[in-house]
Design a protein around this nucleic acid. Structure first.
Lengths: 213, 213
DNA sequence: AATTTAATGTACGAACTAGTACGTTCACAA
DNA sequence: TTGTGAACGTACTAGTTCGTACATTAAATT
């Protein structure tokens, strides 16, 4: 009479097997890229077999798309966490920027998957159905904040929310995505914890200074 | 009695064959990534054969490193073009930023190679010997300009040239490297010629506003 | 308990891919 | 003009990699 899905020690568990494969595949794809990732390697690190990858996902490409979808879904509701209505526009913007900063830093696999997907011209993302819900959450709060700042005469007039989003993303993504070549060339680790606060503040200043110039 | 190297229709030409392979390989690696690129495919697009790739370069990895080296070498002397001594600091900075903007836009293959190399943790770049000469040209002019701006009391005091370089690169690299996912999600093509001037100006404002806040 | 269906494991194959053995041709020097 | 080495082409191999045929076991259903 126990609910089957709540049993912890089941030997056969569709959800668990799927989740296991997905987790391992995420790391493998993020680490090696789409072409570099090996289905056999993913299977080996799973507690199940390669057969199950094809059983549940159909193939390497569909598995990769599933990985992408899960990674993107995880960040969808992110920007909603900032109280854009009651904070001062400047402070709300700083918090939005800091949120992106923190989230990207906490999810290096996601950034790598985005880089990889861009190498492939976003052809897999384009096939996905999650696309629709992605733009709005990223821009909702930003649009409101800019509106309020402009209304109060504190922000410049000609600013597009998407451009501000682009500025913030540029900085945060670059810091992770280009970490290795930057380190190799300039000898500076952009992810050094000792410099974290410096960069975090810098991003806030950058955005605010631009908007209030 | 004609100089052998000036003959256009030679059937055997070491330099030409090498350059041909390198040019084709650059496009192939930039397009497909290191793992995705196929030696046979590169050979097929060459006017020579796969045998020559191994003859001149040794193997796929060495060919890739040669491609990387050539791509990086091409941008080494870039920043020197700005007259940092005689221009106003603000104007010199705007020109430096615009130069990076233009160069990145004109060399999408290079940006893709950098992305690809970061996916591979810059392990190939680290093996290369060109590394040494790369940091200086990128920062030389910037350091002088910031110095002059600070001396004139027009720039904030606490700014590191490498941080400014990072801001500029972030923006320019993001615009190219993340073009496809950005387009897929937000429906905006960051490389649309109609928006080019907008972004170019925006980058200059961003940097100047931050430095003069 | 019997039967059906979902989930899983094993072993294998077909196609691809980096790299090479071997043979050939051209340029140049003596 | 002839010998020699550099430059080049063809055909192949060994190993890899995605995907699947086939067998099996556990859960759900009747």
């Amino acid at each position: 009479m126990a609910a089957p899905s709540s049993e912890a020690e089941r030997q056969r568990d569709k959800d668990r097997t799927r989740a296991d494969i997905l987790a391992v595949a995420t790391r493998e794809f993020a680490d090696k890229g789409y072409t570099g990732a090996r289905v056999d390697e993913i299977a080996a690190r799973t507690s199940t077999t390669k057969r199950m990858i094809y059983y549940y996902f159909g193939g390497k490409e569909q598995l990769y798309i599933a990985v992408l979808e899960q990674a993107y879904s995880a960040i969808r509701t992110l920007e909603r966490q900032v109280d854009v209505e009651h904070l001062e526009p400047e402070e709300a913007l700083r918090q939005l920027a800091a949120l992106t900063f923190d989230h990207h830093e906490a999810n290096p696999d996601f950034i790598r998957l985005v880089s990889i997907e861009n190498i492939h011209h976003a052809e897999h993302l384009a096939q996905s159905e999650i696309l629709a819900g992605l733009a709005d959450p990223a821009l909702g709060g930003l649009t409101v904040v800019l509106q309020r700042g402009r209304a109060a005469g504190r922000f410049r007039e000609d600013v597009d929310p998407l451009d501000v989003h682009m500025i913030i993303s540029s900085f945060c993504v670059f810091r992770l995505a280009n970490r290795h070549t930057f380190q190799a060339i300039f000898g500076r680790d952009m992810l050094d914890p000792a410099r974290r606060e410096h960069y975090r503040t810098m991003l806030g200043d950058l955005v605010i200074d631009y908007l209030t110039a």
